[in-house]
């Protein structure tokens, strides 16, 4: 242990942990975190999902897949479809709206203003999301802000609140800053010399955009879309507050199973597992096909 030649008795040569242990030690804090807050709860939910109709106060005794059979009944199909519709719609809307904004901030705004503009853009995230959703009621309701403006410019009023458009507007508004931040990070690294080269070689702006800019920012597009899709699959605030009489989504259905009148935690857990599965498939697909450059680069 102690080197005899050492002049100082305290300079013990610290025994390095074995090679295989080093990455484990570095990953340990995150690993413990993940195990306690992700793996363990997921396993618990999985266990509950195997108990048909379990309610609080009952003994957990896994006995089969009844809860899962219930999900594939036709009653629940529209719920899943609506969730996918909201999530995919929100992802597309965020991408279409977010890309020009991120492009503008990354390439057009002078460097010293960029951080300020970004800050201004994420500022709404500092207020409660519930508050922002309620603000949309004030804007969208029949006699609300939007319709008074439309009335002033001589346009017919829109009945948006408590319909699908309101939910899509609310979700897009909530998630747009995330999309912009991720796209900005990708576009900021864009190699501008390639843009100049494309222009020099005679590409028009549209060709440059589709064949130079988009391929280079594909990583950001994939990552941003994934984040927005996953988050909107789990959102129950917007469908609940802005949606109408037909706004049942998977996330709301899960909420109802745990905190609603039936208290069927078993069925709620099975629904949660399905939601986790859908999200996992999305991640797997993106890792396999959409995010090659990221996987190779990092």
């Amino acid at each position: 242990m102690v080197s005899p030649a050492s002049p100082l008795p305290s300079t013990t040569e610290p025994k390095a942990p074995p090679q295989w242990l080093q990455p484990l030690l570095m990953l340990a804090p995150a690993g413990v975190w993940l195990a306690l807050l992700l793996v363990l709860p997921t396993l618990l939910i999985f266990q509950l999902s195997l108990v048909p109709g379990i309610r609080p106060g009952q003994v957990v005794n896994p006995s089969g897949l009844d809860n899962y059979w219930r999900i594939v009944q036709p009653d629940y199909f529209p719920v899943l479809t609506r969730s996918l519709f909201f999530s995919i719609g929100t992802t597309i809307a965020c991408l279409v709206l977010g890309f020009p904004i991120a492009y503008w901030i990354a390439l057009k705004v002078p460097k010293r203003w960029q951080n300020l503009v970004l800050l201004a853009f994420v500022l709404p995230l500092w207020t409660s999301s519930l508050l922002r959703t309620y603000a949309w009621i004030t804007i969208l309701r029949p006699t609300g802000v939007l319709n008074s403006i439309l009335g002033k410019v001589g346009m017919p009023p829109l009945d948006l609140l408590n319909r699908e458009p309101a939910v899509l507007i609310g979700m897009t508004y909530s998630l747009l800053p995330y999309m912009v931040l991720i796209l900005y990070a990708a576009l900021e690294k864009l190699d501008r010399r390639l843009l100049e080269a494309a222009a020099d070689l005679g590409a028009n702006p549209a060709q440059t955009f589709w064949r130079v800019t988009v391929p280079q920012s594909l990583t950001g597009i994939a990552a941003g879309s994934l984040l927005v899709f996953i988050t909107s699959m789990g959102d129950f605030v917007n469908p609940e507050i802005l949606g109408g009489a037909s706004s049942m989504t998977v996330a709301r259905l899960i909420y109802n199973q745990f905190l609603g009148a039936t208290q069927n935690w078993g069925f709620g857990s099975a629904l949660s597992m399905v939601l986790i599965l859908v999200v996992s498939i999305a991640i797997a697909l993106l890792l396999k096909y959409g995010d090659r450059s990221a996987a190779g680069g990092v």
Binding site: A35, V39, L40, L43, L44, Q47, L48, I54, R55, P56, G57, Q58, V59, V60, N61, P62, W265
Partner: peptide, 15 residues
């Protein structure tokens, strides 16, 4: 990890 959770049948939910 699995031993802690999976065969741990018989616990009461929300006791």
């Amino acid at each position: 990890a699995a031993g802690m959770v999976l065969p741990g049948c018989g616990w009461t939910l929300g006791e």
